[in-house]
Design a protein around this nucleic acid. Sequence first.
DNA 1: AATGAATGAGCCTTCATTCAT
DNA 2: CATGAATGAAGGCTCATTCAT
Lengths: 214, 214, 214, 214
Amino acid sequence: MNLHSASGLHLSKAESRKSEKRGRITEAAVAVFAERGFHAARVSDIARRAGVADGTIYLYFKNKEDLLLRIFEDQMDLLHSGLDETLQGVSDPRERIRRFATYHFRMVREHRNVAEVLQVELRLSTKFIKDYRPQRLWDYLGVFAQCVRDGQEQGLIRPEVVPFSTMWAFFGALDQIGMQWVLARNKDKFNLDQAALDVAEIFIRGMAADLNPS
Amino acid sequence: MNLHSASGLHLSKAESRKSEKRGRITEAAVAVFAERGFHAARVSDIARRAGVADGTIYLYFKNKEDLLLRIFEDQMDLLHSGLDETLQGVSDPRERIRRFATYHFRMVREHRNVAEVLQVELRLSTKFIKDYRPQRLWDYLGVFAQCVRDGQEQGLIRPEVVPFSTMWAFFGALDQIGMQWVLARNKDKFNLDQAALDVAEIFIRGMAADLNPS
Amino acid sequence: MNLHSASGLHLSKAESRKSEKRGRITEAAVAVFAERGFHAARVSDIARRAGVADGTIYLYFKNKEDLLLRIFEDQMDLLHSGLDETLQGVSDPRERIRRFATYHFRMVREHRNVAEVLQVELRLSTKFIKDYRPQRLWDYLGVFAQCVRDGQEQGLIRPEVVPFSTMWAFFGALDQIGMQWVLARNKDKFNLDQAALDVAEIFIRGMAADLNPS
Amino acid sequence: MNLHSASGLHLSKAESRKSEKRGRITEAAVAVFAERGFHAARVSDIARRAGVADGTIYLYFKNKEDLLLRIFEDQMDLLHSGLDETLQGVSDPRERIRRFATYHFRMVREHRNVAEVLQVELRLSTKFIKDYRPQRLWDYLGVFAQCVRDGQEQGLIRPEVVPFSTMWAFFGALDQIGMQWVLARNKDKFNLDQAALDVAEIFIRGMAADLNPS
DNA sequence: AATGAATGAGCCTTCATTCAT
DNA sequence: CATGAATGAAGGCTCATTCAT
């Protein structure tokens, strides 16, 4: 259920049991949040699905909101490190952007529950949106902004493109398409891979430096 | 508080009084939803702000969720008709897209409360996202899709651009930038007008047909 | 159930209904608190006994603790004003003290539930004991302190008697005897009227000025 | 923290270790009960303060309530035996009463935490007050009742004074003054030693046989 | 004996909605 | 139409207690 499942660390029996329980809760929460939404999801539902008592959840998370937030942060970290791996060795900023989009949608498709939670439920609480600074999301998107800056240094991207706002535009585009896919009843009609390339193409062409500055 | 405040219709005194009360409730709801979020907003808060009794709200709206939905639909209609006015007489699809973006952000800036509700709170209820088909939003965005199709017919836009998914990408980009502006503490640092043109430019260039098909 | 039941005020129908409902809740709360203790008493028990919905209680009281506090304050006010009536026209400080004790125990006996709540349950919450300043109790007991001062001015009471601490001693004596009576399984074995006179006598004699200052 | 800390008994190493752990728990419980009150005190707080695991407490005490009860009984025993020592060799019932009061307040002052628990928290649970017969308290106070009886036999105290109810009055007076001292923010303003003598004096004079039965 | 992770019963409070006036 | 007092369902969270290790 997690984007990446194994860590290479050796844990004592007690530690691994503990971390295993935390993982079970997280998985259950993702499933229940995805299914019913944050507000409609009952803590007792999550507990039952995780096979633990209600109170156990509060040994690992401060409260229901904290549970959502931790899911967000954990998953963003995994998403980010997965992105780094994917882009390793790719130097052309344009290709990096293309792979960013492709990677993003692959993750959305392979982890639909997580995607639903991140895309739909994270927008739920005003607290999250208004008070919480999603640093992890900034970090993830920062990879795109850096591609833009690199592209500009290499003369591939118009200097007047503002990395910061374009980054949000790019994310908005990806995210919205991802959401439409999540919401779509018929997932097959929707070719996510193609959409990834299309969005990337539009941004790459849209930001591209003029070819013949003759 | 509404995007447009007056309608040119003549109403009987009773109707206008009724309509006036409905309007007061709507305004109050927008304000309270923007301030505290849909879930945290209490119906009694809205009633107090509107200067009516709690029960009165249920004479005009089926329930709290219906109230949010009606706000969404009303405001989308106004947004849409305002867009039509704005685009009247503009035939170049590229210019229409540019003006779409500019118009959208002008509305966001001038009606921040409404924007907050639409952008932040609409994403709140899973019901809204999962079960509700936001026809009005489709209609509004359909204007963009049509620009794409027109541009393709006129040879201005690459034929392989998919109007449907690009429409969502465009909306996602606009919406995300709008949200960042709404969330930004310092609204002045954020030049919405410029961002509008930047986003439009990226999409226009990104979708543009190759110039020299030599 | 209240120490005094009628007020001479004219109330509108709505007001009287409201105040009647508040009264029903208070009565029910006194009964349930007396029966099960503050902590064991469930708000829903009180509501059921009062014949109202759980939520209704929160229209009249901030929370469960507030309910207990209001009972305390209301009853202390009634107790105090009843004491004033009882002492009216009695000028000899010693007789006033005697009547104070008699009155106090008559109230305890006639309003056993109230007495249980005031004596047993009020001591329950550290909040009440540590943070709450029971002004109403001070006012009530202040009557005794004033008797002491009057008696000292009239040369009936030794000048070295400290009104403040003696007031608490007197109250402690009354209260403890009252509590023992409340806790006693067989109320008949315990002659409260006699105990009242005995306690009063001990304090009056104990505070009395030396007779033969020869 | 205990009224008396060491017992002169020789214990095996295991027993003393056991007893030492029980003592640590008791001390911690007194501190936590005094600080937060019985209901607000968490068993885990007590455990942490005692430096033991939560479960360990249940090896020494049946449950939280039992813990409070044992504290009460242990401390009452210590209080009582200390009183006996203090009164040893004092035969005049009046002087014994005087020393009783003085001793009681000295204990209150020197063991404020214990006093808080006994005075404030013991009144907490209806169970304690209603179902529990505080035999140890009766024993302690019985010393006073015996003084009264002795005084009556020696013709020093009026025969009509009822030892039983006067005992409670005396205790109520002491206890209430003790509580006011515990609650007082400024302990220095309150002269407990003087109050002890004052209360004793009032009871002694108040119970005294008429001097000149001429 | 000691641990402390896990349990799960229990309840106060909120607030959308209703309906008698 | 309008009111607003009353309703009552619903659930997040705490914490005393247990028990496998």
